[in-house]
């Protein structure tokens, strides 16, 4: 497998290929390659039968993985500094991006939002990854049990208002959060790059199931034109 760009995804078959019927799209959280093999780091949160499947699977079970697919974040021309905004299980591509950017001279400030303190994913690890880029971790929880209370986009906005000078905003999370990041990007004149998620049957651009509406009345396929899309490429009102 070629080295995935952060933001790219893989389609993973349930072992046995029966049910769940579709493969599932998972964003790549990490990658390493040896002489003849490679490994993929995926983070899976149990939300339904497709993800629950992996809880009970014995270690060493084989499956089929297709990827890397789609377009990731533009790491070949990294920004000077970037706010990485993660909502819930939107963390993996941003954590991977921050790891890949360590040493590239890009400061990554990592904003991570979760419902409660228990749902924050590995805050110590996230803080280390951000620190390796010269950035900081800003955890936020809806109930205030850890970090700043309230929405993660609120934490970003407060810093922008106070003059934070990131050159770009990168985000992954639920659509309302992505929309808020797109609006912050527009308000502060910053490119907002958003890793989107939609129901996918194929992940390859042929089922046309994962489209999002564009301002000109057309569509973009999240799997093929995305999953990383510019905030102004999406018609958020129509989504």
């Amino acid at each position: 497998m070629p080295r995935p760009v952060p933001g790219q995804f893989v389609m993973v078959e349930s072992a046995g290929g029966g049910l769940p019927f579709w493969r599932r799209a998972f964003s790549v959280a990490g990658f390493g390659a040896g002489e003849e093999s490679c490994w993929l780091d995926l983070m899976i949160r149990e939300v339904g039968p497709g993800t629950a499947f992996w809880r009970g699977v014995p270690e060493g079970t084989g499956t089929r993985v297709l990827g890397p697919l789609g377009n990731g974040f533009p790491l070949e021309e990294p920004p000077r500094s970037v706010a990485l905004v993660a909502g819930g299980i939107g963390l993996p591509p941003l954590l991977y991006a921050a790891r890949e950017l360590a040493g590239a001279g890009t400061r990554c400030d990592l904003f991570v939002g979760a419902a409660t303190a228990e749902e924050l994913i590995d805050p110590e690890g996230c803080a280390r990854v951000a620190a390796d880029t010269g950035g900081v971790l800003v955890p936020c929880t809806d109930d205030g049990t850890a970090g700043e209370a309230g929405l993660v986009t609120g934490a970003v906005e407060r810093r922008l208002r106070d003059g934070a000078a990131w050159s770009e905003l990168w985000a992954c999370g639920p659509n309302p959060m992505l929309r808020a990041v797109a609006e912050l990007g527009r308000a502060y004149g910053l490119p907002a790059l958003l890793a989107m998620e939609e129901r996918m049957a194929c992940g390859l651009g042929v089922c046309l199931g994962c489209v999002v509406p564009t301002p000109d009345g057309g569509h973009l396929r999240v799997c093929t034109e995305g999953p990383v899309l510019r905030g102004d490429a999406v018609d958020w009102e129509a989504l």
Partner: peptide, 23 residues
């Protein structure tokens, strides 16, 4: 043709539903 609004697909037992609307 722009096709149908989202969501357009749903997973079912041993199959799937689609309403792409002939995009």
């Amino acid at each position: 043709r722009a096709g149908a609004p989202m969501p357009r697909i749903a997973e079912t037992a041993s199959g799937m539903l689609n309403a792409i609307g002939l995009e």
